[in-house]
Design a protein around this nucleic acid. Structure first.
Length: 805
DNA sequence: GATTAGGCTTCG
């Protein structure tokens, strides 16, 4: 129901909305597609006359003021609002300045004029395409800022009407007008970061009128740009503005722009690629898409054959649809991607020399796919996109350059000339649509790719059968902790082992002596007894790990933390600037007192304000200053989140990262000194608006690289044939079923771990007394350059559940 | 109503 007026007698607007709809304040709005379950409420401060777009549809602009805003003087309290299409006819004459309105299912975009008009940085856009609804109170209210809406009335409801969109052929577009068009993609650049603030995508479309149109599309939200996968895709654009550039017509996206993209294959499903959940798509639209598909399918300049690795020719530029096996940062200007498409490149492959430890990806997969995987070097402006990729993803790499190079050998070769090798490069720049598109698993290109990958695997079952990428391929999820545990129980009955495997049960057991004779990387299953483990003191087995720089460090002990804290409030440390703390801030309330028995120490607590007035301490966040170690323990028992700060400068700042920067539910979170760039604590204000106080969100906003707790232990196994040292490395609940972070704050868990280790390894003097352990172990090379050594790591293994532990 | 880019191969 796009437009409703409220009548005397019917009461609150809220009662007219579905119960799941909730109000969102202007200052909590964020850039995103459609708020399906939120509405805004405001008073019309200004309303401009409607005007007709070149599409024949109307549009008008108004400015809304949030009457009950919590920040009345802020520029977030007024917001530009644009209404498009049929909705204009419905409500332009009814809405008046001073009216109170409620809007739902609107689109949020960046405001183009915020810097000039000083209003909200975002704007609202309403059209039937988003399913937008406008509610209005009948009479202009004398006091638009009145906070209570009770007993306001409803007058009438208008019927839903579909808007008839007009699409014009490309040979009919003229400069200066805004139009809707259909077209077939003849050329495109996938969205990339422009040098300005937005993503950019250029798209050339053609249609049977034999005209072509270059479109330059910008959006701060990449999801609003067309999701084109290949040439020949069919697109529908609403509201593009035609203008002249270099004596040619070009199109740019106009306010209210929206795009649908369809697979270009005739007969393919008519499901558009879009993030919008609500769009108008009629039977006429269906016919148009199918006609364009048929028209373009005959044109070989649009529908070029896809090229697979088995078909690639030297010096060729081509689009490769593939799966990512591994990646590594080579240097500042290049990232290495190891990818495969299930076919084998017929040329000898150039391999980028990188340290195996620098490769992100399963070493066993990398090893097993080594004959099918190709190395792709990604340069310059594409590095950002490459860094966002995750192993296992399906990709299309656009305009990949296959280049034959002849390796230069240092020593002159006596017998043979060096053989040219093929390397793959995604060069810098965006020419020819260069870029990387992440392909959704359900698109037709990926369906074909999966078939190819699966047939490659079945063709070589022996060597590829134990591929962990298979999990992704078959979309079978990995066992959850509870599933693994129940699987563990069953396994244990059969194996009489104190540990059980969560996968790879089909692999045969390899004697340790045989493992020691082989070169890494390999995966094995062993059956052995635990003859020793280190460190023996369990608290020493938990460390802090930085996922960014991969450094490992000890957890700071209480004495060290206490020393740092004392340094912060000791007399003479100039720790107090009374001016800073004397006032509440907009986003927190402040309380101050002197520490009992310590006249020099002033304790300050800033309680972060939340939307709800009655927030329980367990869910509250406090910023604290002048705390002793005991204070921190005490407060962290009571408050959900405690953030130690100090205000030596004019603003609140974090302390040295040798003490925790956040205590959340009694867990002490530390930041990496190498990888963090701490920001003033004021930046947390953005979280108090969005309401998401996860430790990861807090760390991100504060510029802190979060360290994770990991178990690091060395197990010595012996199976009679030989002895092998293997590392146990667990962040989450892996091997022990206990997370390293949880054990730090839980005495019961510490006791449990002690009992587990006593069971697995009861006596160093007579290890035969201990139980057998089934373990998965993988071998790998590590070390620097010349000093490479073989190491072993335990994986996919858990301790079996027993009643007595 | 401000910008971005405005298809047209790197040079590793």
């Amino acid at each position: 129901m796009p437009f409703q007026q409220l009548k005397e007698s019917d009461g609150l607007i809220e009662t007219q909305l579905p119960s799941h709809m909730q109000r969102i304040e202007f200052d909590k709005l964020q850039l995103s597609s459609v708020y399906d379950d939120k509405y805004v409420e405001g008073t019309i401060l200004m309303k401009y006359p409607s005007h007709e777009l070149g599409t024949g549809e109307k549009a008008f602009k108004m400015v809304l003021e949030e009457s009950t805003t919590r920040q009345p003087m802020s520029n977030l309290s007024t917001i530009n609002t644009f209404v498009f299409g049929k909705l204009v006819d419905d409500c332009e004459h009814t809405l008046k300045q001073g009216d109170k309105v409620v809007l739902s299912k609107f689109l949020v975009r960046k405001s183009a004029s915020a810097s000039k008009d000083g209003r909200h940085v975002l704007q609202l856009e309403l059209s039937e395409e988003t399913g937008a609804t406008v509610f209005v109170y009948a009479k202009s209210m004398k006091e638009p800022t009145a906070a209570h809406n009770v007993n306001l009335p409803i007058i009438e409801r208008s019927k839903i009407r579909m808007h008839d969109y007009t699409y014009i052929p490309l040979n009919k577009v003229k400069g200066g007008i805004t139009v809707n068009v259909y077209g077939v993609v003849k050329f495109f650049k996938p969205p990339y970061h422009s040098k300005g603030t937005d993503f950019c995508s250029t798209v050339t479309i053609v249609d049977p009128s034999n005209a072509r149109l270059n479109c330059v599309l910008f959006s701060g939200n990449v999801d609003l740009l067309p999701k084109i996968h290949k040439m020949g895709d069919v697109v529908r654009f609403h509201r593009i503005k035609i203008q002249e550039f270099n004596k040619e017509l070009q199109a740019i996206n106009a306010p209210g722009f929206s795009a649908l993209t369809f697979d270009g294959t005739p007969g393919a499903p008519l499901k558009p690629r879009t993030t919008s959940k609500s769009y108008q798509f009629t039977s006429t639209d269906q016919r148009t898409v199918e006609e364009l598909r048929k028209w373009a399918s005959a044109d070989p300049s649009i529908h070029k054959p896809t090229i697979r690795l088995s078909e690639v020719k030297p010096a060729e530029y081509f689009d490769l649809t593939c799966q990512l096996i591994a990646k590594a940062e080579v240097d500042r200007s290049a990232v290495l991607l190891k990818v495969w498409d299930g076919t084998q490149c017929p040329h000898p492959l150039w391999q980028v020399p990188v340290d195996a430890s620098a490769l992100e990806g399963d070493p066993a997969d990398i090893h097993r796919l080594r004959t099918l995987a190709v190395d792709v070097l990604v340069y310059d402006n594409h590095i950002g996109a490459a860094n966002l990729l995750k192993v296992g993803m399906y990709l299309t790499i656009h305009n990949l350059h296959a280049k034959l190079i002849t390796p230069t050998t240092e020593k002159p070769s006596i017998s043979l000339d060096p053989v040219p090798e093929m390397g793959f490069h995604l060069h810098g720049g965006t020419s020819y649509g260069r870029g990387i598109t992440i392909m959704p698993a359900d698109c037709s290109a990926v369906q074909q790719l999966k078939q190819s990958l699966e047939s490659a695997l079945s063709a070589d079952q022996d060597s590829l059968g134990d591929l962990s990428l298979l999990d992704i391929l078959n979309t079978s999820k990995r066992p959850s902790a509870s599933e693994a545990t129940s699987a563990a129980r069953i396994e244990r009955c059969q194996q009489e082992s104190a540990t059980v495997l969560t996968a790879h049960q089909h692999i045969r057991t390899t004697p340790i002596q045989e493992i020691l004779d082989q070169s890494p990387p390999q995966k094995y299953r062993i059956r052995a007894k635990l003859v020793n483990y280190e460190p023996r003191a369990l608290h020493q087995s938990v460390k802090l790990y930085c996922p960014k720089c991969c450094s490992l460090q000890e957890i700071p002990n209480d004495d060290d933390i206490d020393t740092v804290l004392q340094g912060l409030y000791s007399p003479g440390s100039a720790a107090v600037d009374p001016d800073v703390r004397s006032h509440d801030a907009a986003w927190y309330k402040t309380a101050m007192w002197e520490a009992e028995g310590e006249r020099q120490r002033r304790i300050t607590v800033h309680l972060v304000r939340t939307g709800e007035e009655q927030s329980v301490p367990e869910h509250s966040t406090i910023l604290v200053e002048g705390m002793s170690l005991n204070d921190l323990y005490r407060l962290s028992e009571r408050f959900g989140r405690v953030i130690p700060t100090s205000s030596r400068t004019k603003c609140l700042s974090l302390n040295d990262l040798s003490i925790p920067f956040l205590i959340e539910d009694r867990k002490w979170h530390y930041g990496c000194k190498n990888c963090s760039d701490p920001q003033p604590v004021n930046v947390l204000q953005s979280l108090s608006q969005s309401g998401t106080w996860e430790s990861s969100a807090i760390a991100k906003v504060l510029g802190v690289q979060l360290l994770s707790y990991v178990f690091v232990m060395k197990f010595t196994f012996d199976d009679g044939s030989g002895s092998l040292d293997a590392f146990l490395w667990n962040e989450a609940e892996g091997f022990f079923g206990i997370s390293a972070a949880d054990i730090m704050i839980d005495d019961v868990l510490q006791g449990k771990l002690t009992r587990i280790m006593d069971t697995l390894c009861p006596s160093r003097t007579n290890p035969d007394n201990g139980p057998w352990l089934e373990c998965c172990v993988k071998s790998y090379y590590a070390g620097d350059g010349s000093e490479q050594k073989t190491y072993y790591q335990i994986f996919d293994t858990v301790v079996a559940e027993t009643e007595d532990i």
